[in-house]
Design a protein around this nucleic acid. Structure first.
Lengths: 213, 213
DNA sequence: ATCTATCCGTGCAACCCTGTATGGAAACCC
DNA sequence: GGGTTTCCATACAGGGTTGCACGGATAGAT
């Protein structure tokens, strides 16, 4: 769904409208599809509008990166930072990943694809991934895991999540299925058994997450 | 008389030369960079050569996909299919992934990126991933894991590998580091402890893999 | 009501890529 | 050596995108 959902602004677009449309195009068709001509077509405007708000296409691209950094902040890091128990931290991570208002997997993946053939962006993404893994590794250390196991477990859980969304598995699995996999995921990620009745706690966590915002 | 399989490259290119160049370009710069003009420039030839060997750019792209399917075949599936022990299967998987003559991670990743914005390709890649996961899941079942744990463990190990190469972690880690992580990986992936002295067996496995071919 | 800043339409030039048609050069076969 | 096949160069047409210049239209301020 491209950002043509605002026909009210028949005339008068803002700079944000252009970046919104560019973000949608980036997520759905990749960075090479972010072209001024097609964006203008989708926005029902000519390219004259664009060149008033932006000085060039590169300016738009840097605006996209800034938007991404502001959007996908340290939600993952915060999820495990103040977890009282192992179960809480893992489930908080799951909750963040399934709450697309806090964590946007499509945008994350789109930027990742873009970064594959852009060296400077690549380094930036790499740095952020390292920060995520390190945060989770610290979390595992707090609950008795030693190195390098804590680091490897953090990497495994983080990498699994990335591919999970990269392959679009979420689209093929129902909520019921995911809940049925919960125990197995927990055991595989932590090496321990989940405390009984935590599935219900997870459901509550999702409900709380859906309540606010 | 031994026919020289290498005709003078100075002039006279083959269809394979073009697909090779296209594969390199795909791996290094993505599918959108696979352009006849730049390939011709890279091959020191004009586009007239290309349109003699191929009827269109689409023909080249399908040739790329075929090449990928022939290359990255069921090496992973075979690795775990006839494994006598749990350790053997897991280590055989690791050996396959690190042997880039049997498994080309760059090509795999490039096709994956390409498939993100190509629906038919996306389905193809999804099917292959499902086959990989299922093969590993069967492997786990053979050694006493029950469902859905076997399936989830297969998915975790498979997905972790994909992101491992997607992020280019292999470039940042030394062989010594990877060997130091071996025990932790094994425990995380299988939930069991690796049998002592298996690291040496793994090194031997790598040596055998490097010996043949 | 006029002025001005804001926003967008239009036309033009330049570049890049694909695809085709045609001719030429070299190798190969008889 | 003549004819054929293989392979590549050249030229041209068509479509698409970027960037800029300029001119028109609208809304708010005075």
């Amino acid at each position: 769904m491209l950002a043509t959902s605002k026909p009210d602004r028949n005339h008068r677009l803002t700079r944000e409208d252009w970046t919104d449309a560019a973000l949608s195009m980036l997520v759905e068709n990749g960075i090479d599809a972010v072209q001024i001509t097609v964006l203008a077509r989708h926005l029902q405007v000519t390219r004259g509008s664009f060149y008033w708000h932006f000085e060039s296409r590169d300016a738009l691209l840097t605006a996209l990166i800034d938007r991404w950094r502001d959007r996908n902040t340290n939600v993952m890091v915060e999820a495990v930072a103040d977890a009282a128990t192992l179960d809480d931290g893992i489930l908080a991570l799951f909750a963040v990943w399934t709450d697309h208002r806090r964590f946007d997997p499509d945008l994350d993946q789109a930027v990742r694809d873009w970064a594959r053939y852009d060296d400077s962006l690549r380094d930036r993404v790499k740095a952020e991934d390292a920060a995520r893994v390190q945060a989770i590794a610290r979390f595992f250390e707090r609950f008795g895991y030693e190195q390098p196991e804590a680091f490897i477990r953090a990497r495994v859980i983080c990498f699994t999540q990335i591919t999970y969304y990269a392959l679009g598995v979420a689209e093929d699995e129902s909520f019921k299925q995911r809940m049925g996999y919960l125990d197995a995921y927990f055991r595989c990620f932590t090496g321990r058994d989940i405390t009984p009745g935590t599935a219900e706690a997870y459901r509550d966590l999702l409900a709380r997450g859906a309540a606010r915002s």
